[in-house]
Amino acid sequence: MKTALKVALACSTALIGTAAAAQDMTIGITQNNVGVDSYQTTYEQAFIAAAEANPDVEVVVLDAGGDVARQLAQIDDLIQQEVDAMIIWPTNGEAVIPAVRRASQADIPVVITNSNIAEAGFDFISAFSGPDNVTQGSRSAEIMCDRFKELGIEDEAKVVHITGQPGYTTAIERAQGFNDRLPEVCPNVEQIDEQPGDWNREKSQQVMEAFLVQYDDIDGVYSGDDNMGVGAMNAAIAADRVDGITFVGATNFAVGYDAMAEGTYWGSIYQSPVDDAEAALQTAIDVLNGEDVPFLNYFDTPKITQDNMDEFTKPVF
């Protein structure tokens, strides 16, 4: 998929008689996998809308389709096009580093969006823009623990964990945040299994079906996002075991919000793909303008549960 957007930039003349022409910026973005879920679809739509609203910016919008090799080729293509800046939503936080290094060697500033690359690549990027995924995982653990305490089972509860795509930085960091924080807040809760759901609802449902066969006692399910969490919830509903299980995610989707309203899904982390996309584009613009940009440019992602969901609007993705 390739979408090119261009808006002519009007020149203006200063009152003192000096011609001052604002500089066009060509910014390329290669995304992870737009079609895999509604978050990434909404992100792309918001990114294009933000670019169209800025007359100083031309963007080249690419989608790797979840394919690492395709993304590496897209990065090289953007280098050949001599874009002014590049935004990368990595398909794999390790695998993209050599291509990111090539962009850096070509003097093209790189902003990583949504899911960071591995630390070994930090020297080759200008900034990361997105959520703090470790904090999201930690907050999800706190939601889970608080719920167990309300139910009086914090000394005996058993939890299963469905992670995102293996090797994907967001999946790694959200799992790390949850796994590190849960023993701190609920030391007697036992995590009995952890399997990948690959950000896919159907696969996560299958993972949960296997958990339900293997384990007679499951009190909580943590999933790296609500898409996977609702898949797990659907498996529990089909097995008539949904009662008594606390479902917690790490990015609130519309399906998770609806399930919370219905009382079957407990909580998640509220994250806007529109904020995500707009922040990435603005970060790249700020870098090109020479502004001081934090290396880790996080936006806040608060806790959302059945208790406070009325304070939040339903996600559009």
Rank of each mutant, 00 (worst) to 15 (best):
64 A>K: 07
10 A>K: 05
19 A>S: 13
30 T>M: 03
89 W>T: 14
102 R>F: 11
37 D>H: 15
19 A>Q: 13
54 N>E: 03
31 Q>W: 13
40 Q>V: 14
71 Q>H: 04
61 V>I: 08
17 G>R: 12
9 L>D: 01
55 P>T: 04
48 I>V: 10
24 D>M: 04
44 E>V: 09
61 V>L: 07
3 T>A: 15
18 T>L: 14
65 G>K: 01
24 D>G: 15
27 I>G: 02
63 D>Y: 06
68 V>M: 02
41 T>W: 14
33 N>T: 11
6 K>L: 01
100 V>Q: 01
23 Q>K: 11
35 G>T: 04
60 V>W: 02
5 L>P: 01
7 V>F: 03
87 I>L: 11
86 M>C: 13
100 V>M: 03
76 D>F: 03
53 A>S: 07
94 E>I: 10
72 L>H: 02
75 I>W: 02
27 I>Y: 00
72 L>S: 06
8 A>G: 12
103 A>V: 00
36 V>A: 13
89 W>F: 14
19 A>I: 15
67 D>C: 05
75 I>G: 08
94 E>M: 09
15 L>E: 10
8 A>N: 11
3 T>S: 12
4 A>G: 09
109 P>I: 08
13 T>N: 06
34 V>Q: 13
94 E>D: 13
53 A>P: 04
26 T>N: 01
77 D>L: 07
18 T>E: 09
83 V>P: 00
6 K>I: 01
15 L>S: 14
28 G>R: 07
51 A>S: 09
49 A>K: 14
93 G>R: 02
82 E>N: 04
14 A>K: 14
100 V>I: 03
52 E>P: 04
23 Q>A: 07
33 N>L: 12
36 V>R: 14
60 V>P: 02
97 I>R: 04
68 V>C: 05
12 S>W: 09
9 L>S: 05
89 W>L: 14
87 I>F: 11
47 F>R: 12
87 I>K: 12
97 I>E: 00
87 I>W: 07
90 P>I: 08
99 A>W: 03
77 D>I: 10
46 A>P: 08
95 A>P: 06
61 V>S: 07
